[in-house]
């Protein structure tokens, strides 16, 4: 078991200056055509390190969907406690190995039942809609919880841009599958590539975020760089990372964890303290970064987003469609 002594107290939001210093390794991603950095002439005035910082910074606009009054998890914990099995099954594996993934150049192919099939490069994705700061609760099916200040825009903006056919009822996401850059893909228990899916109305919901950053910076590799989906009212595995394909389909797509253990990980997987089918009890959750005696708290229905999303599931038996 590893320890570390120099961790940031979870009770404080990590100041940007501090976590930026840790981000020298992000130089590669910084060059990923983010295109929203400060002007080059301004960069010239700073030292090399500050250039990196500036290039990583995303320009954001305020959002009506930004969660308020939430205690943000530290940048350190968000980037050192990850489930990203492409890099290994240990929580610390992604922070150790995710740098191997080349996130530039990067394209996201949109196809299936749409009028405008299109392959977006990162530049085009970044320009599709203004980037918003969205502080969301994040709840893993393993019963731990974080609060993460994501940067992105509603996936609906992209969906609108490609104009799905009326026959498109589901959206499928495919994550990158590069064994040479993702050592965890050796794991034979998992049918790669990682796949996830949403019902069309879920994908269109304004809370569903096409995510390109966190803490005002481009996404660190271990958190799903360069682009991922975040669905805050569902368990974390429903928020696929490092996506390369978005496909509009008629039938409910097969999703990775449902393929591995269908009785445990349903297609919907909405955060629900009352559905106890899964391996672990979901009645409570552990707050990441809190002192051990303060970690335990009750799970919120729809992870606290019931007011916004409960209507999507009206009349559905949520124990059956878990």
């Amino acid at each position: 078991m590893k320890t570390r002594n120099s961790r940031i107290s979870p009770s404080e939001i990590t100041p940007r200056e501090i976590f930026m210093n840790r981000r020298k390794f992000m130089v590669g991603a910084a060059a990923a055509g983010v295109g929203l950095a400060a002007a080059g002439s301004v960069l010239g005035a700073f030292g090399p390190e500050k250039k990196v910082m500036a290039a990583n910074t995303l320009q954001t606009v305020p959002s009506q969907w930004n969660g308020k009054g939430l205690q943000e998890t530290s940048f350190y914990d968000i980037t050192h406690y990850n489930n990203f099995y492409e890099f290994g099954t240990s929580k610390s594996d992604p922070s150790k190995y995710a740098w191997k993934l080349k996130t530039e150049p990067w394209t996201v192919e949109v196809d299936g039942l749409v009028h405008k099939k299109k392959t977006f490069d990162m530049d085009a994705l970044m320009k599709l809609s203004p980037l918003e700061d969205r502080v969301y609760r994040f709840r893993c099916v393993e019963a731990w919880a974080m609060v993460i200040p994501w940067v992105g825009y509603s996936l609906s903006k992209l969906i609108d841009a490609v104009q799905p056919l009326s026959s498109a009822r589901y959206v499928e996401f495919v994550s990158v599958d590069r064994p040479s850059q993702e050592p965890g893909i050796m794991n034979v228990s998992i049918p790669w590539p990682y796949r996830e899916g949403l019902r069309m109305d879920e994908a269109m919901h304004p809370l569903t975020l096409l995510t390109v950053g966190l803490y005002g910076q481009v996404l660190p590799n271990q958190d799903g760089a360069p682009v991922r989906i975040v669905v805050p009212w569902k368990y974390g595995f429903k928020s696929p990372k490092s996506i390369v394909k978005i496909r509009f389909v008629k039938n409910q797509p097969q999703t990775t964890w449902s393929l591995i253990a269908p009785s445990e990980y349903g297609f919907y997987s909405n955060v629900n303290p009352n559905v106890d089918r899964v391996q672990w009890s979901q009645k409570t959750q552990r707050v990441i970064g809190a002192p051990i005696w303060k970690q335990l708290e009750p799970t919120l229905m729809f992870n606290g987003y019931g007011d916004q999303v409960a209507s999507l599931y009206k009349g559905m038996n949520l124990s059956r469609y878990y």
């Binding site: 350190y76 002192p291 970690q295």
Partner: peptide, 14 residues
């Protein structure tokens, strides 16, 4: 470590 909160992001898990 539990008292000083140095057992990692999820001390309960640790």
């Amino acid at each position: 470590g539990a008292y000083k909160n140095t057992l990692g992001p999820d001390p309960t898990h640790t």
